Amino acid sequence: MSDALLVAGDGVARGPELLHADLHNHTLLSDGAGAPEAAFASMRAAGLDVAAVTDHAFGPSEPNKTIDDEAWRRLGKCADTADEPGAFVAVRGFEWSSPTLGHINVWGGDRYVHPQGPRVPAVLAFYDWLAAGAELAGFNHPGREPGRFGLFRYDPRLADRLVTLELFNREQDYLFEGVDAGAASPLVTCLDAGWRVGLIGVTDEHREGWGSHPDLGRTGLWAPSRDRAGVRAALLGRRAFATRERGLRVDATLGGVPMGGRAAAGEVAEFVLDFGAPPDWTGHTLRLQVLQSGSPLPAVVAECDFAVGRPVTLRARLDAGDWAVLRITDPGRPADPRAADFPGYRSAGRSVAYLSPFFISPGG
């Protein structure tokens, strides 16, 4: 596009440590296969630095697929046994699971709760419950369930603690969820509703062999330490990226502000991307896009191709709302079929990574 300029960058100051994470998994404690003790061991053996088991908390309509008090205690014991600060981070969580309203992961607390019915008041009751504690939470496979969390009903009490949106879940790219049926992208709906979420990828694994199955979602976290406190800090800072590829290093700044932060954007904003990958990616051409609010998909306000192996700078005019998301794609691989009617997406090919948003303030 005319506003795109590709030049050599100076790199990005990322913070102390990149942790490879999977924050959404299931076991026989709800509707998955295999024991939670095996899940943590399997994910560590697969090379993950951070692993969460988040078995379902369904309502009364799913009595055989939900955790109870005994399962919750067992999961906590498993996570505490597997957790090794400085080496491997094991997290207990649960997935608040409404078949009509959506699923929300909750991490870092000593309590859990089941949905209280199929309608929007159940989301509001859950928000009341969440506001009374200190847990972190995130929207799962957004848009898969028709209620979409009460159309992403915003609650300012949870602005700091509802911290993630899954854009890769299993092998699916949720940027495109529902757009082929006329719905807005969940990314647009969520961010335009006021939520300030980081973007993550997860396996949502229900099989054994956690962490070992290829081409499923995963998360990169830029954390100050390799322990639960460091993971919490990374999530609170929205210092995360979503991918389905292994071994990526991805970060970016906008005017010196890291992804996940609040940045002032002048007439032309300058993004600096730092993208690292395994040796077999070297020299491969990818595409960097700047996304802002649009309908039904975000507007592509700038884009450029780049060769893997060096930082790049992309300049863009940010006129479409108060957030911007960097998307990396591979034009040499087929785009999601749901992108067929959207040239800016169809020609960009397969999604490689989504970086957490920059939240834009006027001026600069």
Rank of each mutant, 00 (worst) to 15 (best):
V312Q: 11
G138A: 09
G34D: 00
V89W: 00
A21K: 07
W107E: 15
R74D: 05
A181H: 14
F94T: 09
P258Y: 00
H20M: 07
A137D: 10
L19F: 00
F40V: 07
L5K: 07
P99Q: 05
F152T: 00
L248D: 02
P362W: 09
L288W: 08
P357K: 06
Y127T: 04
A353H: 04
G211F: 08
A125F: 04
H20Y: 10
G255M: 07
N64I: 01
T189W: 05
E205I: 12
L355S: 08
A87V: 12
V106I: 12
C304V: 15
L29Q: 06
P156Y: 00
P118S: 15
T81M: 04
G93Y: 11
N25P: 06
Q116Y: 02
N169P: 11
F58L: 05
A41W: 06
G133Y: 06
L291S: 08
L48G: 06
G102F: 12
G178I: 10
V53C: 06
R333A: 14
H26G: 15
G109H: 09
A348N: 12
W210Q: 13
A242P: 01
L167E: 01
D215A: 13
E166I: 14
N169E: 08
D215G: 08
A51Y: 05
G283S: 15
G143D: 06
A252P: 13
K65R: 11
L187G: 11
V308R: 06
